[in-house]
């Protein structure tokens, strides 16, 4: 996906629209499949976003992290 991928929140909104459109019914087969595929992509994206939020836990004193950042700058 490109850099301008949609956010988790936007994805959830779009999902809600897709699901309620499908639930309202009256879609053709083509449209149904297209919506289903879009929804499945959005769900995958959301799950990726959730796992991307897990990571390292740092706990540093102000002086230490400042020193660390300064070292990086050199």
């Amino acid at each position: 996906m490109s850099d301008e991928k949609i956010t988790y929140t936007e994805a959830m909104h779009r999902l809600e629209t897709i699901v309620s459109t499908l639930e309202r019914g009256g879609m053709g087969l083509d449209e149904t499949l297209k919506l289903y595929e879009e929804g499945a992509d959005l769900l995958r994206l959301c799950k990726t976003e959730l796992s991307a939020a897990e990571g390292r836990l740092h706990e540093l004193q102000l002086d230490d992290i400042e020193t660390e950042l300064q070292a990086e700058e050199q």
Binding site: V19, L22, E23, G25, L29, T32, G39, L43, L50
Partner: peptide
């Protein structure tokens, strides 16, 4: 959050299935 996603997954699948059988 996982629960919401699972719920959407289920609604999406069910609604699509119903659409197909309606068709």
């Amino acid at each position: 959050l996982h629960y919401f996603l699972d719920e959407y997954q289920e609604r999406l699948t069910n609604a699509s299935r119903r659409q197909i059988s309606d068709n």
